[in-house]
Nucleic acid binder design. Structure first.
Length: 481
RNA sequence: CGGGGCGUAGCGCAGCUUGGUAGCGCACUUGGCUUGGGACCAAGGGGUCGGAGGUUCAAAUCCUCUCGCCCCGACCA
């Protein structure tokens, strides 16, 4: 194979300019386009379908854990938003307001939702009377708006798509269990469907959700060594139930406030998928979320129409095990198609030419490894189904290997700073738990505490990487998106 | 929101310094010929130069404002 880069000259190499590479891939793989509104993107069919696959994967898991979908309004009255002080303060700078409609000024201005805790709190107040009404396990698929200063396609856009789960429970313990259960759902989804390994953990006080008692996250590592928060699960305690007066009569005759949780995952994970798996030739899609899993490219020569017919037949056979596209366009050469579909990240390409038919074989080319396999046409559906699973698994293993290689311990501040500056990646270090140390590290290295991993090693660092006092936790530091 | 860079055909760019009414490659259309890693030939179509205002006989080019994108910083999923 000749030099790879010559084939995809439209894409900036990763090591030259990772940000530009990211933008190039999104454009060339036809995932999204910039919209006429600042910071907003259009999800093109190819990009939106990836989101639909994510929705399927998540929604199935939500249903399996007893949740049901509902839909709450886009507009939130200012009075509702103002009820929870910490919450308002957190979101105020990024709220768009509707102040007039129908040519008249509104008596109360309406925020376009940045998240729905408040309006859902208001409704739960009306719906919950008895312990028999609990738990309430509701999820919402919707768009939200946050007027961010700096935007980047998928990772941070003014309007984005997500799901937000909102649950109410009788006891603190039950709510806490829910928080951890959904964090685990996110971890499983990301690792299984998107082949992205993550570190589950708890957010520090300064990084937690505005209004939460505790925030948990799963953190992923991008190929440029920066971290990305891929999903969050919040234990809201009774913060919202107190301000929205969500009380129930318990079986002991006492009126009590419910314990609530919320958890969300956004279209940002598409950005994560691009930056975890993509390479210099473009997008690399994990089979489970790939809109097209297999592209069949017949090698068409004049006067050999049977190749096209056989390719069609093979593609049809494969539809029982995979999402298949047959590219039998005559106006493009096979080589052009190979590059095009690789750029678009299709996990598996099947080449079928006259020579293959003579030998009753097909050529299978893996997008993730570049490997070409010559396989028998007998049992092709089984072969392909198995290979797609192998690709999915190996993509995850590869990403996990990358994360492991780029997770380094640091015992001292100097070590931490050196790793962050020169190698990036995750840095494991001790932390005394004080906000001052966290802030100092952030100021001097631009690295933040991504989370306090749930799995705390027995032999972890003994001292705070900043002040040297006894460490309370082993945490992950990284520069983040 | 501060600092830097860039907006000219769908994409990538030249032209701007020194004003004279727009060009190249790819893509696109038609025909031919091809097809195992981005073929070739021929003939075509497409841009009020991001937008607004100003200077000028004349503005892609000079001036002012504005919008958007990228990179670097402070806030966030």
């Amino acid at each position: 194979m000749a030099k790879d880069k010559e084939f995809v000259k439209e894409i900036t190499p990763q090591n030259e300019d990772f940000s530009q590479w990211y933008i190039d891939v999104i454009k060339k793989a036809d995932l999204a386009d910039y919209a006429p509104v600042r910071g907003c993107i259009v999800f093109k069919p190819e990009g939106y379908e990836i989101w639909e696959r994510c929705q399927e994967g998540l929604d199935r898991r939500f249903k399996a854990t007893g949740h049901r979908n509902a839909y709450f309004p886009l507009f939130i009255p200012e009075s509702l938003l103002l009820k929870e002080a910490e919450h308002v303060e957190g979101f105020n700078p990024e709220l768009p307001w509707v102040t007039e409609a129908g040519g008249e000024k509104l008596t109360e201005r309406l925020a376009v939702r940045p998240t729905s805790e408040t309006i859902i709190g208001e409704m739960y107040h009306r719906w919950i009377q008895s312990h028999r009404d609990l738990p309430v396990l509701i999820n919402q698929w919707c768009n939200v708006v946050r007027w961010e200063k700096r935007t980047l396609p998928f990772l941070r856009t003014t309007e984005f798509l997500w799901q937000e789960g909102h649950t109410a429970h009788r006891t603190e313990e039950e709510a806490r269990t829910e928080v951890m259960r959904m964090l685990e759902v996110y971890r499983d989804f990301l690792e299984t469907d998107l082949a992205i390994p993550v570190v589950p953990g708890r957010k520090s006080e300064s990084e937690k959700f505005a209004g939460a008692v505790e925030t948990y996250s799963i953190e992923a590592l991008m190929k440029d060594g920066k971290a990305l928060q891929a999903g969050t699960s919040h234990f809201l305690g009774q913060n919202f139930s107190r301000v929205f007066d969500i009380q129930f009569l318990d079986d002991d005759g006492q009126r009590k406030y419910v314990w609530t949780t919320s958890w969300g995952m956004t279209t940002r994970i598409i950005g994560a998928m691009i930056m975890v798996h993509g390479d210099d030739r473009g997008l690399v899609l994990p089979p489970r979320v790939a809109p097209t899993q297999v592209v069949v490219v017949p090698i068409l020569k004049k006067g050999q129409d049977e190749v096209r017919a056989r390719a069609q037949q093979i593609a049809d056979e494969l539809r029982s095990v995979a999402r298949v596209h047959l590219d039998d366009r005559a106006e493009y050469s096979p080589g052009w198609k190979f590059n095009e579909w690789e750029m678009r990240g299709i996990p598996l390409r099947i080449e079928i030419g006259p020579k293959d038919l003579e030998k009753n074989q097909a050529v299978l080319a893996r997008r993730d490894s570049g490997e070409k396999l010559f396989v028998s046409l007998d049992n092709l559906p089984e072969t392909v189904a198995g290979l797609l699973e192998t690709i999915q698994k190996e993509m995850y293993e590869r990403a996990r290997g990358f994360m492991a290689e780029n997770t380094r311990p640091a015992a001292t501040f100097e070590e931490l700073a050196e790793i962050i500056e020169n190698k990036r990646g995750f840095v494991q270090a001790g932390w005394c738990g004080k906000a001052a140390c966290e802030a100092e590290v952030k100021e001097k290295t631009k690295a933040t505490i991504r989370n306090i991993p749930l799995e705390q090693p027995d032999n972890g660092p003994r001292h705070c990487v900043c002040c040297g006092e006894p460490a309370q936790y082993k945490v992950i530091f990284a520069r983040a998106y």
